[in-house]
Simulated assay, not measured.
Amino acid sequence: MTKEELIKIFSAYLPYDLDVCTSYGSPKLNNPKKMFGADIDRIKRNKNLSFIMKPILYDLSYLTKEIEHNGEFFEPMEKMHKDWDCEAEIQFLYALSDDWASAEDKLQFAPYSIFQKLLAWHFNVFGLEENEFINKANLKPE
């Protein structure tokens, strides 16, 4: 992944208090921290990306499973279905849940409100490979 692609991805999550794990010159990831603008500047300045920054995200398959966000536990698909009455959004949700294998392809056609919610809930909406993010569902509470 190029530096420009990383900047675009991290910038999209910037308003949503995304947690990241960082490692500067060390192979071991440290404790998660909130991402902020200086992290994006660090990516821009670093010529060879010798540091690692991995976002902590949910895989899209967790749209139909219970997640935790800001201390609240809920199933995202169920919550979106209850909260929205727009037919286009509801139809898109059903289309998305029909085939998780092509969910990332379908997201490019998502209504903005759905895409924004998925960003806010820290879902992997950009199709990052498994080695490029930390699956939030696999983290153990301290």
Rank of each mutant, 00 (worst) to 15 (best):
K3M: 05
E5R: 15
L6A: 13
L6N: 11
I7E: 07
I9L: 03
F10Q: 02
A12M: 07
D17Y: 12
L18A: 01
L18C: 02
L18Y: 00
V20N: 04
S23V: 06
S26F: 11
K28A: 11
L29E: 04
N31G: 10
P32D: 05
K33D: 05
F36N: 13
A38V: 14
A38F: 12
I40P: 05
D41Q: 15
R45A: 13
N48I: 12
L49N: 11
I52Y: 07
P55W: 08
I56G: 00
I56M: 01
L57V: 01
Y58S: 01
L60S: 02
Y62Q: 09
T64Q: 14
I67P: 05
E68I: 07
H69Y: 11
G71D: 04
E72T: 09
F73M: 14
P76W: 05
P76C: 07
M77V: 10
M77A: 10
E78A: 05
K79I: 02
K82V: 08
K82D: 11
D85K: 15
C86D: 12
A88S: 11
L93A: 02
Y94E: 15
Y94P: 00
Y94Q: 12
A95S: 13
S97N: 12
D98G: 07
A101D: 15
S102T: 15
A103F: 03
A103P: 03
E104S: 15
D105Y: 13
K106Q: 10
F109P: 02
F109K: 15
A110M: 08
A110W: 03
P111F: 07
F115Y: 14
Q116H: 10
W121R: 01
F123W: 03
F123G: 04
N124H: 00
V125K: 07
F126A: 00
L128T: 01
L128N: 02
E129L: 13
E132A: 13
E132Y: 07
E132V: 03
F133S: 04
F133M: 08
F133V: 01
I134W: 01
I134T: 04
A137F: 12
E142M: 08
